[in-house]
Every structure is written in structure tokens, then in C-alpha cells.
Write a protein that binds this DNA or RNA. Structure first.
Lengths: 210, 210
DNA sequence: TCCGTTACAGAATAATGTTCTGTAACGGAA
DNA sequence: TTCCGTTACAGAACATTATTCTGTAACGGA
């Protein structure tokens, strides 16, 4: 399960060959050199194609960035929903969110790294509306889980807008540190610790929980 | 306590007037338009100066970004160290880290937002060595606190490289959400909740703690 | 007052993003 | 199979933007 697999999944077929290749090479370059520092010419050379081809498929550099970003978001959400579907208790749900997050980051470090760095550009740029649109539908399953009836009883009395950060914040922070090379242990090696930490921080204070 | 104050603090004196102005205006533009989308010409026009002046002070666009980034980091650390010095227990220390983080973000939203978005570029670019250098000295106080003797007894048995993320991850996540406009409540309004959550997630399991 | 240094101006240049026009490959319809 | 609209690609021309360079003015200590 690597970058190539993700691309086959999202853009299958022979006719999308070059498109996948541009995706793949651009992703690497953006991550290695930085987004600004990567020129269209570099991508063109790496893919042994023409600028025309790149602009044909993606419109412009911003479009390429946005397309990569959306692809990453969608793939990550796919895994998250799968994990969430298998969780039958609140604690398991929290675990599912943390596990799916760190597992995906570790399976797709390239895409994860890029996602972190491209978010701002996409949020500001001309694709911000499309982003908001996609967010809405992509996070349906998550929102449904969060607001499921009876959830509140198992959790502390917390502002709803705080919940996502409380659940995923620590894992997210560690993943960033790992991708930046500031720490060595892989995120998924700590998945239980991270899930535990999240759960301990939001669960209602029971008497006999561990 | 706003952007202007921060600048007076970091670059005082009359002769740094234009430099401060460039900082100030560039920061706003970078945040509003995005870093790539902001041209030197825009900054020049906004400051009513010349490109020569900008390049004289900062070398190039990357240098300007790096200078802004370093300024933000240093100011944030200043507040953190101040809070940390006043904390006399482990729990208070965790609280100090969370409080200083959210308070600074709320006092300096412009700088905070920029910091998030510029990190990658600086990490990759020609200033990465200077960044690593500065990180080392800037985080001295923090590292000292983290490794202070007796700390481990009050905390769960956790990998050291996980600690920073466990303490600050949730607050960090919420700050990002707030700066991006995804949530409404200001970070410092939730400072106690966030500090509590962090503490609950890492403290050793006592019997009679609340 | 002199003089080296720093601060700034703005035209010239270079690097890079984008457009545009043309050509080839594709794939269904007749 | 042939035709034809559509999609895929090529690469030169163009536009925008970053950067350099040369010159001038202000500063500040000797």
C-alpha cells in the first residue's frame, strides 16, 4: 500500500497514466523542494512530458496542488470511515479515529506531509469553495458519529467544537513531528498510547475505569 | 499587545522603522493572499517603498518569510518561558505550557497563523540550519523542565518523544481550527479545559485526583 | 568636515508561470 | 472501415514576478 496504489485507486485506467505520473512526481518534488520552490519545468522534466500536458490536466500549478490535496483528503477519509464502521462503542470510536489517522499517515507519509503543507494554499486559493463543498460530504460519516445520541453521557461535558481537537490533536501533533523528522518512533507504534490519551482526556469520570 | 508591540519589542529604534513596516504589511499580505500569491510588488506598494529597500533588508522573499517566522517563534517562546518560570508543580507546568500557547495565539493571531503556514518553507529552504540552531537555544528552558528529575513519577510511563505532543497537541489543533475559522470559541476561552485534558491524558493514575 | 557604512530608489535582467496554436491519438457513430 | 468530435499532448510565444545591479542620499563616528 503505497503512493502508486493510492493513485491506481483514485485515478484508474490506462488513459490516466500520465496524469498519475504527474501526480506522483509532483508530489515528490513538492515534498522535497517545497511547493513554491518546485517549478513547472522541474515537473515537466521529471515526467518527460510538456508543459501543455500538465496545464491540460490541471489548469495551473494551483490546480495541481489542489488536486493532490483533494486526493489525499479523500483517501484518508476512506480509511477513517472504514474504521469507524467497525466501532461499536464510544471508546472504540475514539480509538478508530486515532488509529485510522496514524495508520494512514504511516501508510502514506508522502501524501500526509503534502496535505499538511498545502492546506493553507488551498484554503485561500480559488478552490476554497470546492474544498468546503467536499468537506461537507466527505465528513458526513464522522459528523454522524460525533452527534450520535447517547454519546454525551459517556463523555465529559465539553463544548462540541472542542471535541475533534481533543480526540485527534495529540495524534496529529505527533504525526507532524514524525514527518518532520523531529522524532523517531513511528506513529502507529504509539497508536494505543495515543488512543488511550485521547480517551482519558474526554471520557466521563467513572469510578472503575482503567 | 498587538502586532506593532511585538515589532517594537523585536526591532526597536527609529532606524528600523521601514523594516518594521515591511514586516507588518508583509505579514498581513501573506496571511490574506497566501505566501506564494503575495508578490514583492504588492509589498512594495503597500509600504510605499522600493524593491531595492526590501531586498536590502531581507535578501529575498524567502529571507523575509524566514525573518517573520523567526520573530514569531522567539516571541512565542518568550511568553512560554515566562509562564514556565512561575510554575512550581508538574501539573502547573503542563498548565503553563497550554496557557502560554493559547494565550499567545490569541494575542498574536496574525503571527500565529503565519507561523503555521511558513514552517514548511523555512524547514526546507536555505534557513533550515539557522532554524535548527535557534531551536536549540530557544527551547533550552522547555527541555530543562521536561527532563527535570522526579517528573516521571507524576506521569504515566510514556515515551519521552511523545510528551510534547501529548501536552500541546490538543491546544495546537484547536488553535489551528480557530485561526482557520472552523470554530468560534476563542482558544483562551477554553484554556482550562484544554489544560485539564492534557493533564488527564498524561498524569499517573492516582486514586483521589479530580 | 571627511569618509566609510547603511539605507533606499528604480531601471534592467532573469526566472518562472501561463496561454495559445497546432498535431496526434482516441473512441463511438454511421 | 471511415468519419468526426473529443481528449491528450507538444512546444514556442507571452506575461508575470523575483532578483540583480548601479547609482544616490542619509547617517554617524573620527
Amino acid at each position: 500500500m503505497d503512493t502508486a496504489d493510492l493513485l491506481e485507486r483514485s485515478y484508474p485506467g490506462r488513459r490516466a497514466e500520465l496524469k498519475r505520473d504527474i501526480f506522483h512526481k509532483a508530489l515528490s518534488l513538492f515534498n522535497e523542494q517545497g511547493i513554491e520552490a518546485t517549478t513547472i519545468e522541474m515537473i515537466r522534466a521529471e515526467c518527460d512530458t510538456s508543459v501543455g500536458a500538465i496545464y491540460h490536466h490541471f489548469g495551473n500549478k494551483e490546480g495541481l496542488v489542489a488536486a493532490l490535496f483533494f486526493t489525499a483528503l479523500e483517501d484518508q477519509a476512506r480509511l477513517r470511515d472504514a474504521y469507524l464502521d467497525a466501532a461499536d462503542t464510544t471508546e472504540k470510536g475514539v480509538q478508530a479515529l486515532v488509529f485510522s489517522y496514524v495508520d494512514w499517515v504511516e501508510q502514506q507519509p508522502q501524501w500526509a506531509r503534502f496535505q499538511y503543507h498545502a492546506r493553507f494554499a488551498v484554503t485561500k486559493g480559488p478552490f476554497k469553495d470546492e474544498l468546503a463543498e467536499r468537506n461537507k460530504t466527505r465528513n458526513l460519516r464522522l459528523r454522524q458519529w460525533l452527534t450520535q445520541s447517547g454519546r454525551a453521557a459517556e463523555l465529559q461535558d465539553l463544548p462540541a467544537e472542542l471535541l475533534p481537537s481533543l480526540i485527534i490533536g495529540q495524534a496529529d501533533s505527533y504525526c507532524r513531528a514524525w514527518l518532520a523528522g523531529r522524532v523517531k518512533g513511528s506513529p502507529s507504534a504509539y497508536r494505543e498510547v495515543l488512543a488511550q490519551a485521547a480517551w482519558r482526556s474526554i471520557r466521563a469520570e467513572g469510578l472503575a475505569e482503567n
